[in-house]
Structure formats: structure tokens, C-alpha cells
Amino acid sequence: MATDTNTQKSPEIDAKLQLGIMLTIPFSFIGRQVIRWVNNLGAATIFLCLALIKTFRSKQLPKTVSQLFYIGAKSTAIIMLVSLFTGMVLGIQSYHALIKFGAQGAVGTLVSLSLIRELGPVLTAIMITARAGSAMTAEIGIQRISEQIDALKTMRIDPLKYLISPRVIASIISFPILTTVFDLIGIIGGYVSGVLLLGLNSGVYFHSIQANVEMKDISDGLIKAIVFAVIVSTVCCYQGYFSHLRRDSHGAKAVGFATTSAVVISCVLILVSDYVVTSFLI
């Protein structure tokens, strides 16, 4: 009799067990993803720290200058173009919004504060991610899959010192400079649309900027630029450096995926960290 009862109950138990397993699948999936994410975060932090420690070793200056030229100087033109049109759009939009309240004299304030506090650092970081960050990932990734990084190790050349450190330092130097360029050209863009095209008074435009923009606004914008520089350079270099460990692909495809991931993760982290930094600074 006991055996009969067991055989009758076992399908029920099995069904419950399977239901239980099915219910836990999403949680275990999320758990695994979180653990992986935390692992990557930790690894990226160590990666960054090791790269920063190696900044002041010998023979680093020429490499850093070369990266400054690539990340900084060569990005200037695109930053100027984007900032000019961003400033012009801001000028038009704020003029038409403020004129409803008769406050068109505040166009200069709105354009400059928007640019200096938010749009300057964020858009500069996104533009550099697209231009230089993706190139960093692809270049390092190709060096990884073609064993060039292993070749460096066999020559007793530290890949972190040779490849990563100059890129991180060059980013930390060039992001604030390019952000400043973005802010300045953006304000000129606002002048072009607000003053030259829509007829605002030039003196009012510049006076409102001078009266309302404080040193803290500028320094907060530059702090954000530095934070974004660290995020973008670390994410892009990390993705390229470990492209051979990707589980979703191998070889050239892995480099392609790593580049996509680097750009997406950098952009998301720029926006998330922008909120976090702003909350602390404001």
C-alpha cells in the first residue's frame, strides 16, 4: 500500500519541483548577471588602479603626448562642430520659450548654464566615446587577438603601462579641455542664433552670462568631465584588453562586439554618473 501511495505522489512532487525550478530560473539568471557585473566592476577598478600606478614610470611621456594628440587634438574639430549647432539649437529653443514670459533677456544665461553644467561635459564625453573610445577598444582588441599583447609580455614590456596608462592619462587631460572648447563654441552658437538671427541684444546676451555664471558652475562641469574621462577610458580599454575572454564570440567578431559594448556601456555610464555626480555637487 505504501508503495502505491508513493507512486501516486511522485508525479505531484515532480511537478511541484519543476515548478519551483522554473520559478527560480529568473532569479538565478539575475543573480548570475549581478555577480558577473560586480566581478567586472571590481576587475575594471583594479585595471584602472594598475594603469594609474604605472603613469609615472620612465618613457611614458612620448606615449601620453601621442595619445593626447589622437584623443584630444584630433577630436577638436568634431567637438567644435557639434557644440556650435548645440548652442544654436539651445539659443532658438530658449528664445521661443522665454519670449512667452517676456524673459528673452535670459537666453544667454540659459544657454551658458545648460552648456557649462550639463550639455558640455555629457555631449563631449559621448562624442569622444564615439570617435576615440571605439578606436581604443578596436585597436587594443586587435592587438589582443593577434597576440601582440602577449608579444609585449615576452619582451618584458608591461601592456598596462604601454597601452592603457597613456590612454587613461590622455583622456583625463583632454576631456576637460575639450569640454571647455565645447562650452565656448556652444555659447558662440547661442549668440549666432539668438543675437544674429533672432535679433536679441548682444550686450544683454553676454551680460546675462557674465552675471549668472559662477566659478562653481565651471568647476562642476570640469569635475564631471574628469569623471567621464575615467569612465570612458577605463571601459573602452578594459573591453578591448579582455576581448579574447568574451563568451559570446571569438576573434574579429569578439573585437566588434567589444567595441559595441564599450560604446554602449560608456554612454549609459556617462548618463548614470552624470546624475550621481550632479546630486553630490548641487
Partner: peptide, 19 residues
């Protein structure tokens, strides 16, 4: 370790030249 590695050189199968 560094001094022992300094005595060695490695020629890779696929050359691993800096392109």
C-alpha cells in the same frame, strides 16, 4: 623572474608583429 625572462626571446607562430 624578470632577470630570467630578460634572457629569453620568443618568436610567435603567427609572428605577432606590431602591424
Amino acid at each position: 623572474t624578470n632577470s630570467s625572462l630578460a634572457e629569453m626571446s620568443y618568436m610567435f607562430q603567427d609572428n605577432a608583429l606590431f602591424d
